[in-house]
Amino acid sequence: MDHSSYTDEYLTNILEEVKTIAVVGASDNPSRPSNFVMRYMKRKGYRILPVNPGKAGQEFLGETFYASLSDIDVPVDMVDCFRNSEAVASIVPEAVAINAKVLWMQLGVFNETAAETAESAGLKVVMNRCPKIEFGRLSGEIAYMGGRSKIISSKRNKLLGKR
């Protein structure tokens, strides 16, 4: 599929379907973007599973850092990649092996080949996006900080959290 833009419906379906998110390249440094995303998505009701071989075994946000995706012992719905674009190629086979449903690449991360491989294995793919920003946008929360929800509707909004 074309990854230059996504419909709100495509992203909403992903954010409504997934319950567990493995974050590859997760950092426990509170000033790093991955830390922002994990805290936000956890508060929205997602289970966050941090993956970082250098931190394996350490506690973080009520979970334990995993060395790799294959070490995770619960079903993973989505793999969120905080790695450089090239590194995504090596993440895809693992994501497929653990039956993840969604491969998500963060802002600034692009890998068309990895996207095609994941899609041919049945995964939905998002690239160069941030799930925090997209959840905030689709829920309208991003407008608290001056961003645009882009919602034009006479109906009350429904996507306000998993809880």
Partner: peptide, 11 residues
């Protein structure tokens, strides 16, 4: 947009 943007009903 001038009438609606940003102003969906109060949740």
């Amino acid at each position: 947009l001038a009438v609606h943007a940003g102003a969906a009903p109060d949740p």
